[in-house]
C-alpha cells in the first residue's frame, strides 16, 4: 500500500468519548478539501464512532491502521 500524504496529525490518545469526535470534527474544518487528517486514538469506541461520524459529516476515512492497544490511526480525507 502506498504511503498516504498526511497534511495534519492529531494525537487523541487517552481521550474518552465524546472527545475524539469533538476534536476531529473541529480539526477537519481547518483543512482544505482533499487534504488528509490523521488521528491516533486509544478509545476502542472510536472504531465504530469514527466511521459513523465520517458518514454523517460527509468526510471519508481512507485508511484505518488498528493498533494493539484497542486504538487506531485513522486517515480522514476532508470532502467538500
Amino acid at each position: 500500500m502506498s504511503e498516504i500524504k498526511v497534511d495534519k496529525e492529531l494525537d487523541l490518545s487517552g481521550l474518552a468519548c465524546p472527545m475524539p469526535i469533538v476534536q476531529v470534527s473541529k480539526e477537519i474544518k481547518t483543512l482544505a478539501a482533499g487534504q488528509i487528517l490523521s488521528a491516533r486514538t486509544t478509545d476502542p469506541g472510536a472504531l465504530s464512532d469514527f466511521p459513523a461520524w465520517a458518514e454523517t459529516s460527509g468526510n471519508e476515512i481512507v485508511r484505518v491502521d488498528e493498533k494493539g492497544d484497542g486504538g487506531a490511526t485513522f486517515y480522514i480525507k476532508r470532502v467538500g
Binding site: 468519548c17 469526535i21 470534527s25 459513523a52 461520524w53 459529516s57
Partner: peptide, 11 residues
C-alpha cells in the same frame, strides 16, 4: 452533555 457535544461534532 456527552450526547449534546457529540451531536455538534456530527454536524
Amino acid at each position: 452533555f456527552i450526547i449534546a457535544t457529540g451531536a455538534v461534532a456530527m454536524g
